[in-house]
Write a protein that binds this DNA or RNA. Sequence first.
RNA 1: GCGCCUGUAGCUCAGCAGGAUAGAGCAACGGACUUCUAAUCCGUGGGUCAGGGGUUCGAAUCCCUUCAGGCGCGCCA
Length: 569
Amino acid sequence: MDFKQSIARELVSALKTVYGQESLDQAQAAALLEVPPDTAMGDYALPCFKLAKTLRKPPVAIADALSGALNAPFLARVESVKGYLNFFIDRALYAGEVIGAALGAGDRYGACDLGQGRTVCIDYSSINIAKRFHIGHLSTTMIGNALYRLYNYLGYHCVGINHLGDWGTQFGKMVCAYKKWGDRAQVEAGGVDEMVKLYVRFDRESAENPALADEGRAWFKKIEEGDPEALSIFNWFKEVTLKDAERVYDLLGVKFDSYAGESFYNDKMGRVIDELREKGLLKESDGAQVVDLEPWGMPPCLIVKKDGATLYATRDLAAALYRKDTYDFARCLYVVAYQQNLHFKQIFKVLELMGYEWARDMEHVAFGMVSYEGQTLSTRKGHVVYLEDLLSEAIAKAREIIEEKSPGLENKDEVARQVGVGAVVFFDLYNNRIKDIDFWWDRALNFDGETAPYVQYTHARCCSVLRKAGQTDAAPDYGALADAQAQDVVRLIEQFPGLLKNALERSEPSLITRYSVDLAQAYNKFYYERRILDDDMGARAARLELTRATRNTIKIALWLIGIESPERM
RNA sequence: GCGCCUGUAGCUCAGCAGGAUAGAGCAACGGACUUCUAAUCCGUGGGUCAGGGGUUCGAAUCCCUUCAGGCGCGCCA
């Protein structure tokens, strides 16, 4: 039963009864309904100020008149308060309906067919070859992962794309350095760190010896031309980098369907240039080929350099065309930091000018910058936190706390991993994505308050109660859930499916993160105020159902943002 | 210089398709475990919602403006 729609329906007929006219239809009435700030004010409310204009009556009079004309069986009462019409749904009925819906859907509560199987491409994480994974890469990875799961859950088919940064002269230099000083076994063992060492040495020596830099460029040219030796070394670098990254991705539970990165589009840019030229969009400017975007208040989009080489924008256009051709997406998301706002605005505009209506299906999911203790991240200055180190610290801390609080726990290592990694991921997805994050160890490793461990603890607590309860045959007495604490939990559970749609529309995983805290808080209050394993078996059954619905909903919410829910901790 | 973003409690932030008394967490202080997991819960203090105008019955929320900080603005990605 959709209470909001039901109230809207009653409202329309009450308006007709009282004022004898169809001033609103049901959808309009539903849009006017809002949720009061406090449960004590009711479950839904209609502010009558807007109706005052059309009905030419004071708001208070409207609310008074309507409250007298409304008496649906599902409404416990309707009150007129200072121009607001407050609806109180029958609490037992409300609890029964909401819990029934949640438990009926089981581990798919909130899922739906919104996407109808349509495809959405999500470009996220997009790491660079031969560079270590650090905290600056966490947001794109986890926001992308959350959107991937969310879109899937709401009926879309997702294609997760790790658009690798695997193109540029630096790779020629690295191949060159490897040929001169490298050792295969050492690189295999040391991974990305060894490659970085080679690169640093090359940089240092080529500063004194310019011939070396030329040699590096020559090796890059070989890669470009498909020279077998150059290519095999370069591809091996990629493998080693991905193998390193895979350890982190495994810890985070992140997966991709495609690793087609920059080099993949190397032979696909001619098409873009030809097409732009055919459509009369290219023009010369200072020797370069550009698309003029002046009429839209933007600087020109550079397509071909003076020396004939292509650029970032060219590659992204090629990638967009390829993705449309290959996947026929209904939406295409780019989870990339906000520094690139202009870049994506330009790309989307160029696609539109090319005549592609699907340009409007593209979205840049921008997020804020990460700094470390108030300063910009800098690998060069060593002012950086590597993701693997951060996760290890978090897991170690979780392990310590387990040792202290649950020495008898069976799978301590597994739970430590779930809790430690969860804390880090939660920290990253906690605020609106547009906010900058200043990383401090003690904040990222905080396990109290609004954190993953807090929500996970609540989940484990629910599991524990359910285990202790065993089987009950008694019919639930939902009247036992009429108190304010239980009602707050019920209300949150009711809101979950709508919240997911909202999070998808806004591409905002933090809404789910916040929600998980709200639900955990509400449940913990309920837990303290009400005895679940009550002697009254009807009340016990109802509270157990609420506990089960809470547990399921928390587990789903956390899963959607990429966090596991241990059953004991 | 131009464009975009951000500014809410000591700190980190919710709230911003206008609505009832501006909320959490952290930090501080004080309480609650022989009772369903105390990684929890309850309480106390703490605010000119950056400043100023405007629109509105009603503004943290919308518009204008000033200030502060961040990001971006042709041959890097």
